[in-house]
């Protein structure tokens, strides 16, 4: 009801300017952020954290809509097929935007480069490579060596996740081999690690931090470009000298391709505004993520780099099954 009243008020206010004001008028109705997962996960939380501040900036309600399913492809295709007017946006993450279409052999699959217009990234979540503390392994070279020779098992939250792909890349670049046990999501994978069924894992920061604090697992490396604030003593993958790549999960906003430049610009402003809020930054930090605003072109470059890093790894994994 309130929204209807707002629209009416806006319409009345804009009446004198009518046609020429159209371009400036965005947004004149609620904007929808389509989340490719059910409520509750990192991506959903990210959308719900920035929505109130974006609302302030845009002066229109922001609706967070969950369209889960098919590894995020349902949401991606829904946004891709929406009108490119800036009212339906995709709250993307690695899986739905990049990996899913690479994995799923589908004629109609979408391509982030041609089907979406990047707006801005929202957050970056690094992972930590941890090993069960009772194994006494302290460094990455040691782990890689023992994983290969002693047959240590690695827990993965699912085939084709960033966690899994990071391990595949680590294997490919070090030439060592180990067996990966796939679980259905982060929770059972973590349970297997904490319970001792598996020995090591890549995990998102928020998932693994409590276990690190408790001393159940020892962190060997973080997968971001720079060290992580919560673990200042833990080296990055590059600093270990073993491999040089980063494996992070991101969230970011994209519009359907063909959305007018000025509309995108307004949305970029709104994301910037939301992410500059200290309260919002703190909440993201609680989730184990860093807020990260980028310009559309920076975000595009970021996606292109991710694409370049992971496409061969995904192809390798696909070929194996």
């Amino acid at each position: 009801m309130r929204s209807i009243a707002k629209i009416m008020a806006a319409a009345v206010a804009l009446l004198p300017f009518a046609a020429p004001a159209l371009a400036q008028a965005f947004p004149e109705k609620p904007v929808t952020l389509v989340v490719p997962y059910p409520p509750g996960g990192n991506v959903d939380s990210a959308a719900r954290l920035i929505a109130p501040r974006m609302e302030e900036k845009l002066g229109q309600p922001i609706v967070v809509e969950n369209r889960a399913g098919a590894a995020g492809m349902i949401a991606a295709e829904y946004v891709k097929n929406s009108d490119p007017d800036g009212y339906t946006l995709f709250m993307a993450a690695n899986g739905p935007l990049l990996f899913a279409p690479m994995t799923m052999n589908r004629p109609k699959a979408y391509d982030w480069k041609t089907d979406f217009a990047p707006i801005s990234s929202v957050s970056i979540t690094p992972m930590a490579l941890t090993v069960r503390s009772d194994l006494g392994i302290k460094t990455l070279p040691e782990l890689v060596e023992r994983a290969d020779s002693d047959g240590l098992l690695m827990a993965s939250p699912g085939a084709g996740t960033t966690n899994h792909l990071a391990a595949e890349k680590l294997m490919a670049e070090t030439g060592k081999k180990w067996r990966i046990v796939h679980y259905k999501g982060n929770a059972p994978a973590l349970a297997s690690l904490a319970g001792g069924e598996t020995a090591f894992a890549f995990d998102q920061m928020s998932v693994i931090l409590p276990q690190i604090k408790e001393g159940t697992v020892t962190p060997l490396a973080v997968t971001s470009k720079e060290r992580v604030k919560a673990l200042p003593d833990v080296p990055t993958l590059a600093e270990t000298g073993v491999v040089d790549f980063q494996a992070v999960t991101f969230t970011g906003l994209l519009a359907p391709a063909g959305t007018p430049k000025d509309v995108v610009a307004k949305l970029v402003d709104a994301v910037d505004y939301a992410l500059s809020d200290e309260e919002v930054q703190k909440r993201f930090a609680d989730l184990g993520s860093d807020t990260q605003a980028m310009s559309p072109s920076e975000f595009g470059d970021f996606l292109a780099e991710m694409d370049k890093t992971w496409r061969p790894v995904v192809a390798e994994v696909n070929a194996k099954r």
């Binding site: 059910p38 409520p39 509750g40 996960g41 990192n42 959903d44 939380s45 954290l49 999501g185 929770a187 059972p188 973590l190 349970a191 904490a194 928020s206 998932v207 931090l209 409590p210 276990q211 604090k213 408790e214 159940t216 909440r283 609680d286 989730l287 184990g288």
Partner: peptide, 25 residues
Amino acid sequence: GIPGDAVMAFMLGAMIIHGIVPGPQ
């Protein structure tokens, strides 16, 4: 800090947003 099902996963997310980190501590 290990949720049993989807609803619990959501609760966990809610706790973290509130600055509570469920876990052994």
